[in-house]
């Protein structure tokens, strides 16, 4: 089973890297880009557990390890 976890900064947290990317896009003329938030992607390959178990364990892993809940939030999806 393949799972993709997407980590991004909470809306309340400034993202200087995203801001810099946005400024670069603006300098290239892409002025319609209103905001950029940079994040991280993790692709996990799981085996030996059911989809039901995975649905419980993925938020646990994300909360405990992949993301720092003070500054980051996460979403995830099962790819296959």
């Amino acid at each position: 089973m393949k799972v993709r976890v997407l980590i991004s900064f909470k809306d309340s947290v400034l993202d200087p890297q995203g801001q810099t990317v946005k400024n670069a896009l603006h300098s290239l003329g892409y002025n319609f880009v209103k905001d950029v938030r940079q994040g991280k992607v993790f692709e996990l390959e799981l085996e030996g557990i059911s989809e039901e178990e995975a649905k419980k364990i993925i938020p646990e892993i994300s909360d405990k390890v992949l993301a720092n809940p003070i500054i980051e939030k996460f979403t995830w999806e099962i790819l296959q």
Binding site: V13, L14, P16, Q17, T20, N68, I70, I71
Partner: peptide, 16 residues
């Protein structure tokens, strides 16, 4: 901070 013995978190320096 990561361990939770102190509150908060570190972000990348503002000037990157």
């Amino acid at each position: 901070l990561e361990l939770g013995l102190l509150p908060g978190a570190m972000l990348r320096n503002k000037n990157l």
